[in-house]
């Protein structure tokens, strides 16, 4: 009986988890393409081109849960050692999603670039015990915003060339 429950959970985790993952990756790829123009740099100090910009803190965060299949697969993996692919994709998804949300935040402010990108990862495990329950990733950085003067100048330039 217990074995049946285990197998059902495993199957549910496998199918729904995979579905969620591929759906999430499709969404990530689409949005990464859309936000490619907004620079995100981990450098601490922006180049001189941004010396007159305004700045503000922007951030994005996401909590992603493991599925049952991943938990079991990773558990087996820890017996033999080696790469834990199940968790790699999970963290990859979380990081990229967090960066995208940060970029969305920056876009709302009308930013030109984001500098000094920092990541912060933490583990949230409620009833998972030693295993990974879910991860939270926070991405934050300083968005450089054009000043009102710069905006006016850009509009004027665009009109002149038009």
């Amino acid at each position: 009986m217990e074995l049946i429950v285990f197998l059902v959970l495993l199957a549910l985790g496998y199918f729904f988890g995979r579905m969620a993952e591929s759906r999430h990756y499709r969404r990530i790829h689409k949005r990464e393409k859309a936000y490619r123009r907004l620079l995100v740099m981990p450098q601490r100090i922006p180049p001189i081109d941004f010396a007159r910009h305004d700045s503000t803190l922007v951030m994005g965060s996401v909590v992603i849960s493991v599925d049952y299949f991943k938990t079991v697969a990773a558990g087996l993996r820890t017996l033999f050692g080696g790469r834990v692919g199940a968790y790699e994709t999970l963290l990859d998804r979380a990081r990229r999603e967090a960066v995208l949300r940060m970029q969305e935040d920056a876009k709302r402010h009308g930013a030109d670039a984001i500098y000094n990108l920092k990541f912060e990862t933490s583990r949230i495990s409620q009833n998972a015990g030693n295993a990974l329950g879910s991860v939270e990733v926070l991405a934050y950085g300083t968005a450089l915003l054009p000043t009102p003067d710069m905006r006016a100048e850009r509009i004027a330039n665009a009109e002149r060339t038009a």
Binding site: F16, V66, Y68, T71
Partner: peptide, 26 residues
């Protein structure tokens, strides 16, 4: 929310409730 999160631990996916909670506390 914890019960919902427990279910999500089987199916996988984003825990929107937690994302919001952590965002608010931040």
């Amino acid at each position: 929310r914890d019960i919902m999160a427990g279910l999500k631990n089987i199916f996988g996916g984003e825990l929107k409730g937690y994302t919001e909670l952590l965002h608010d506390s931040r």
